[in-house]
Design a protein around this nucleic acid. Structure first.
Length: 825
RNA sequence: GCCUGGGUGGUGGAACUGGUAUACACGAGGGACUUAAAAUCCCUUGAGAGCGAUCUCGUGUGGGUUCGAGUCCCACCCCAGGCACCA
């Protein structure tokens, strides 16, 4: 194929050099790096802006264009903040511990440390090639000992303050990843990472007491500027319920005083008279104590074992089939009417919510209803609808209503009845109003290799002991056989050199904890480290933390709504309580970018529909990649990638480039051009304030088209246009800025300001409507009086044609916009 | 089932607190330049009727409020996401 010229001849003026993204992008990336253009100055006196992207996970497969949407947005905001006089902190690092790296290593046989290092290098290259203005001098890598030393320190702080503890409990276990998982990592009964069905295992594990912060985590949401959607997800996850704890006493045979009572939780005390049995979760510890009384213990024990062995999916896939076993020989008393009631164990009652036991009211709870039907238990209706018909006997009636069959409380409304029954119970010491949360403590132990070792030691004499701060970090040993096993033991247990240690307290023989921490622990505090990444004495100096935090803008995906975003808030609150930080919430403003779809599906490696930014950068350049992602549609909505759309913004950048040849020092712009320029400055400034990058770009395109129609363009107008474009297309911005005499980075320059007086229109076209239908328009002065405007409109041809003899009953006048004649009423 | 978002041309999407629906871009069609192609530039592009100026219809569906509704209210349908035996 014959190639005529080396320079591309895109654009009209072939003799002038064309837009060559390859040379200018490389050139500016080098300059930025050498000059430290985007490095934050801790000593600056300017107002601060901390713009942060969610800690990226260094995938071995690199990032696809979908990942760049958020990064580009925050980059635009940060660059514009620089131009508005802020000292901008925009750090980056890598959340490099965790399951995917390890699973990749297992698959390929490459050690996770080596695989991670390579993945980081690749992504670092991708970031730089996209022109993202990170302060690389602050890079933080979670799997490096300098970092995880402080992750371990965080653990110890939580431990010393009673927020890290060990307990034996049924926990989620992924048979494929061969490790336990936090509640938040189980999605619809499946492992968040690999999709395998999760089962329950009774294990002793480390937990963080996030439940102590349930209320504060809920309250804090009121004060932060986050998408309502994410706040709602967190509220639901925390799940606050007001209700009553009620004591049912056992009839006979129990020795210890404390165990004579069974406590249940209900949100519907008003239905207490309708209780016909009680149900205990199969994992409930009280069952051991009831054992001597139970005549069918074998049956019960086998049910208990069965419930535990089921996977989450099995437990819910049975489609609400309510199984259970009656504990024969055990009876309880309903405290309000002394009725003697049977006791069941059933797995529809969950051990880790409420008290692990419920009072069953089949008439007014659908689950209890199904169970009662199946087991032939009585159904007593105690709530009648206030108006309308009850859903009984087809299904439970779950609404509020008026009480009946409730002795002295009959006739009261549910609301009043609930209050009175609760008061009655409280007076007799048989119940109290309480609050329960759905939030569970955060299980952080992992039986995996690639994580930060938990800095605890088990001494034969002294039990669990924390590693001394001065002995941190507990280094992750480099072992060859890092594969997980199904025995519930961590791969680290196989390293004798690692396990064997001495007790920090007594100096005697001791063994190290071999489990590692959930990666979400690493990412719960990294935003503090960025302020002071090299500090060896503390995780970050208090001065720098208070200088930079909270994060002013945090950009990332919604998928972390109950994981990272909840955990980080918990960490910040805990660190505040320990006296290390002064803030209560780490991220003042959160923005979640929408996903990018391609070929009708979410872009993902497994679906094989990923587009690499690398190929776009080579073909069109980083500025085109950035601009297209910003132009696709509203930032917070999902949108479909279009190859043709990319070419479209590329054309716009060419046009922008070629406009430089129309720039003249000697001309002054027409009033019309000046007006459009100032309108554009207003529009782009406001749009960017609200992250409406798509309409901001559209406004810049309109301006460019308008400038292109002129024979010549003033340097001043052109440069204002370039400054506005620069945060989005930084390489092109810098290059053009420099070619017109700019000596320092365009980002050290001021963002343009519009003049309200120059925007005002002298003339406006008034829409003429008749009976609300648009019939035409008339040009009139904007300052025209109502009378005059109406008169002009009335005498217009349009009005004559459509009114034609009919009487005008009413005239609607909207200044500067519209006149509507109403002929009939 | 419950809780969020969202349904606008062939496509991605504009439309401020109710006031010219479809900005900007893509695609498509036509033309210019070219031996030709690419690139670039110009014109057309919601549907229907008409030679035409124009007219009628049109923002998921059906109602309502209003001089006027993509925008507000009611009912419903569809799509995406979140939660889901939480007592």
């Amino acid at each position: 194929m014959p190639k005529k010229t080396k320079t591309k001849t895109i654009g009209r003026v072939a003799k002038n050099p064309g837009y060559n993204h390859k040379t200018i992008e490389k050139k500016w990336q080098k300059i930025w790096e050498e000059q430290g253009t985007f490095r934050a100055d801790d000593g600056s006196l300017k107002p601060k802006f901390y713009g942060l992207d969610m800690f990226p996970y260094p995938s071995a497969y690199g990032l696809h264009v979908g990942h760049f949407k958020g990064y580009t947005l925050s980059d635009v905001v940060a660059k514009r903040k620089m131009m508005e006089g802020y000292e901008v902190l925009r750090p980056i690092g890598f959340d490099s511990f965790g399951l995917p790296a390890e699973n990749f290593a297992i698959k390929t046989g490459i050690h996770p440390a080596a695989a991670t290092k390579k993945a980081i290098e690749n992504i670092r290259r991708q970031f730089k090639a996209a022109g993202l203005g990170y302060d690389w001098s602050r890079e933080v890598i979670a799997s490096s000992p300098d970092y995880y030393r402080w992750t371990q320190w965080m653990f110890l702080q939580l431990y010393k303050n009673g927020l890290a503890y060990r307990k034996k409990a049924p926990v989620n276990f992924c048979p494929s990843c061969k490790t336990v998982l936090a509640n938040e990592q189980v999605v619809e009964g499946k492992c968040e990472r690999c999709g395998s069905g999760v089962s329950k295992k009774l294990l002793e594990q480390w937990f963080f007491k996030i439940t102590d912060y349930a209320e504060r985590l809920l309250e804090g949401l009121e004060l932060i500027d986050w998408p309502e959607k994410i706040k709602t997800i967190q509220r639901n996850w925390i799940g606050k319920s007001y209700g009553t704890d009620i004591q049912f006493s056992f009839f006979t045979g129990i020795k210890e005083e404390d165990d004579k009572k069974l406590e249940v939780f209900t949100t519907r005390v008003d239905t207490l008279f309708g209780c016909t049995y009680v149900v205990i979760a199969p994992e409930h510890p009280i069952l051991e104590k009831l054992k001597p009384l139970v005549s069918n213990w074998e049956e019960a024990a086998s049910y208990m074992a069965g419930a535990l062995s089921k996977t989450e999916i099995e437990r819910s896939a049975e489609d609400r089939e309510k199984t259970g076993v009656e504990l024969r020989g055990v009876r309880v008393v309903n405290p309000v009417n002394n009725k003697d009631l049977p006791v069941f164990i059933a797995d529809y009652v969950l051990m880790d919510y409420g008290t692990g036991a419920v009072m069953a009211v089949p008439a007014h709870d659908q689950r209890d209803f199904l169970f009662a039907k199946k087991h032939g238990l009585p159904i007593i209706e105690v709530v009648k609808p206030k108006n309308g018909e009850t859903t009984l006997p087809e299904r439970a009636f779950e609404e509020y209503g008026v009480l009946q069959n409730s002795e002295v409380f009959s006739g009261l409304t549910s609301e009043a009845g609930a209050a009175d029954i609760a008061k009655y119970l409280a007076k007799r010491g048989q119940g109290k109003t309480t609050i329960h949360y759905r939030l569970r403590d955060w299980l952080i132990s992992r039986q995996r290799y690639w994580g930060a070792p938990i800095p605890m030691v088990k001494c034969v004499k002294c039990g669990w002991q924390p590693v001394e701060d001065r002995d941190l970090p507990v280094l992750l040993p480099r072992i060859k056989d890092f594969k997980p096993t199904s025995d519930g033991k961590s791969p680290l247990a196989r390293s004798k050199a690692f396990v064997k240690t001495v007790c920090p307290k007594c100096g005697g023989k001791a063994e190290r904890e071999t489990e590692t921490m959930d990666t979400f622990v690493c990412s719960s505090w990294y935003y503090f480290r960025y302020t002071d990444p090299k500090n060896k004495a503390v995780f970050a100096s208090p001065e720098l933390i208070s200088k930079w935090l909270p994060v002013d803008l945090y950009v990332g995906g919604v998928e972390h709504a109950v994981l990272h975003l909840l955990y980080s808030r918990f960490f910040t609150k805990a660190l505040k309580d320990f006296g290390y930080v002064e803030i209560d919430e780490p991220f003042s403003k959160l923005y979640s970018q929408g996903l990018i779809y391609y070929q009708g599906a979410k872009m993902s490696k497994s679906k094989g529909n990923v587009i690499s930014p690398d190929s776009i950068v080579v073909q069109y350049g980083a500025d085109t990649l950035r601009l297209y992602e910003l132009f696709m549609g509203p930032m917070d909505q999902a949108s479909e990638w279009s190859d043709n759309g990319v070419a479209g913004v590329y054309r716009f950048l060419h046009k922008t480039w070629h406009l430089r040849y129309k720039v003249s020092d000697s001309i002054e712009d027409s009033v019309g051009i000046t007006k459009i320029l100032h309108k554009t400055i207003k529009k782009v400034s406001e749009d960017l304030d609200h992250f409406r990058t798509n309409t901001a770009i559209s406004a810049l395109m309109i301006l460019a088209n308008e400038l292109d129609r002129q024979l010549a363009v003033s340097k001043e107008s052109y440069l204002k246009f370039i400054i506005m474009l620069a945060p989005m297309a930084p390489h092109l911005g810098e290059e053009l800025w420099q070619s017109f005499g700019g000596t320092s980075s365009i980002f050290k320059n001021k963002w343009p300001v519009y003049d309200e007086n120059l925007i005002k229109d002298e003339m406006a076209s008034f829409v003429i409507q008749v009976n609300g239908k648009t019939r035409g328009k008339i040009e009139m002065k904007t300052g025209i009086s109502e009378e005059e405007a109406k008169g002009l409109a009335k005498n217009s041809e349009i009005a004559h044609k459509w009114i034609a003899g009919k009487e005008i009953a009413k005239t609607i006048y909207v200044p500067g916009k519209l006149i509507n004649f109403v002929t009939q009423l």
